[in-house]
Design a binder for these strands. Structure first.
Lengths: 199, 199
DNA sequence: GAACTAACGGGACCAGAGACCCGTTAGCCT
DNA sequence: AGGCTAACGGGTCTCTGGTCCCGTTAGTTC
């Protein structure tokens, strides 16, 4: 037996998937992952709840699919020619995303889902891996320019920019203001220059 | 009407609370917050489920109480006399905690709870505020020694040590090994020395 | 454009989480 | 030590999230 949605992926099937993922995002942003209810998602999407249970089955599978969808729409990075400015652009992008009411709540919810389900966690890791890969070149260029020591791990630098912002969002509770983003970028750049991310 | 447990806080009431919080920690570590079930907690604790529903009512309230309890048992920091070594000690402590199967899962679950409930989020923020306050003096001492620039924000430095480790735990999925902790401490120290956390 | 069948949708059904009632146990105070 | 009553605990009821069945709709292929 094949998974539903794989034999006739076009037309209605695709429309249903789009509507359900959209509705799932809304529900997650509004109520958080623990309150995610597939019947409610079906109602919001204007779709039979049987369909949602059959195609996704569990809330975590739905979140995993939503993450796969989000990963496909990764936005391109900007290029400025200086490491600090590139990292600042990245930090502000992350900050804007997390500070946005809908997006911020959605990311919280998705992370909550990943904490209790292996599949969702994998989908989340893939999502961030794609984001990191998108931005890694700006670190590589800085190494090539001689701004950073040879052997600096690009991924570590990019993650170091995001980490304090996510920490604020999830654990610390401090505001996600522009100053925080500037500090995150500045700290990552300074640490990288000092060779903290070189192997 | 008073809250249950406030008029006769000793004896049985205290025993029940301890048993329930212990059981709640176990349940969270094993199944994660979204699967937290008060009846199950009651069963594990060997306590009537009515009691749990009456005293805590919701899963988020139970988590908030658990966090308050965890905050009270904050362990003292070590002192080494050098900023880098203090931060390394902190990083390794955090790493050990998050890498421990039970503790790590518990922290994940607690963070998941905080993503969808304001009270749980506040309790979590309080917990981390206490931890940060415990460790902030080592940064202040480094400033006094002239190791760090005047005006360095101690809390920011401490949080900068934890942030990459939590990012790994929740978002990135990379292993929480000792090298990661060393890098977190080294990066925070380097950034602090460069004045990235000075106002 | 007709047939074949994947995929959807409504509604009945089931199980388990959470609320409630009321009798029992054991802190706390004198 | 005895009484008052806060707090616990078993049993029952309800209501909602999740499953199943079967008829309907609409991609896909020739």
């Amino acid at each position: 037996m094949t998974e539903p949605g794989t034999v006739r992926p076009g037309g209605r099937t695709a429309r249903v998937r789009a509507a359900v993922l959209e509705a799932a995002g809304d529900a997650l942003a509004e109520r958080g992952f623990p309150h995610l209810d597939l019947a409610d998602v079906a109602r919001r999407a204007g779709v039979g709840k049987t369909t949602v249970y059959r195609r996704w089955g569990t809330t975590t599978a739905l979140v995993a699919d939503l993450l796969a969808d989000m990963a496909e729409q990764s936005l391109p990075r900007t290029e400025t020619g200086s490491l600090l400015d590139d990292l600042r652009a990245n930090a502000q992008l992350v900050r804007r995303t997390l500070a946005d009411p809908r997006q911020g709540a959605l990311f919280k919810a998705v992370i909550a889902a990943a904490t209790c389900d292996e599949r969702a966690a994998e989908a989340l890791h893939r999502f961030y891996a794609i984001r990191v890969d998108e931005w890694a070149p700006c670190v590589e260029q800085a190494v090539a320019r001689g701004e950073l020591p040879e052997g600096t791990d690009p991924g570590e630098v990019i993650r170091a920019v995001s980490a304090p912002l996510y920490y604020r969002l999830l654990a610390g509770g401090q505001p996600l203001d522009e100053a925080a983003a500037e500090r995150a970028a500045g700290a990552a750049a300074a640490a990288a220059r000092a060779g903290a991310y070189a192997r």
